[in-house]
Write a protein that binds this DNA or RNA. Structure first.
Lengths: 96, 96
DNA sequence: ATTCTATTTTGTAATTTTGCCAAATAGTAA
DNA sequence: TTACTATTTGGCAAAATTACAAAATAGAAT
């Protein structure tokens, strides 16, 4: 793969990769209106809390969500609302 | 992972996965204005033609692009222009 | 029909992703 | 300080992704 091309698209590809997992899309849809902690999200999704922590970290690293500390908890919120618009648009086209 | 939640987000996750590779983003950006064949795309990207064929197939399966046969060639075109808008929006937010 | 040309598929090895458990951190509360 | 709670990190095995080369298809051109 040509290196210039690779560098041009690597960051965007990383972002899409961060969004390419059911659990991480669940996170995004769940925190779009109300903030939740790691434990709350792991309970809702019925997965191990350590697994949920890693998914949150992937989204955080890519600046798709942001954590906010309140007392002992970290509450997560969505940073890129246009993700939801894109899912709506793409689904509409693909489904028909 | 809760099965209902998994099913809710599986299709969207697949779409994002299809978009999560530099070569596939290169394809999308390259064919947005002008159609190209597998061989042309593989030459431009400097990768094996069989590899390029597989990348195109992943995008095609997810209905992100569409192939159109002309004589011996198959020319690919973009089916979901809003992908580009989303990349623009997300990059703007993430980069600052 | 035979030869080219374009594309896809198969085989395979290297790399990456994923999820659970256990252990480690970090910070709160008493 | 000590116990408790929330979260993250390390280890590891299973599954998925990726790329190239070689073989197989499919169709055009002569």
């Amino acid at each position: 793969m040509n290196k210039d091309i690779e560098n041009t698209y690597l960051d965007s590809a990383e972002m899409f990769k961060a969004l390419s997992h059911p659990t991480r899309l669940f996170i995004i849809n769940t925190i779009k209106d109300k903030k939740f902690s790691v434990r709350e999200l792991s309970t809702m999704a019925e997965i191990d809390i350590s697994t949920m922590s890693k998914h949150l970290n992937i989204l955080k690293k890519n600046k798709i969500i942001k954590g906010e500390k309140v007392k002992n908890f970290i509450y997560y919120k969505l940073e890129i609302p246009c993700v939801l618009d894109f899912i709506t648009c793409a689904t509409k086209i693909i489904k028909k």
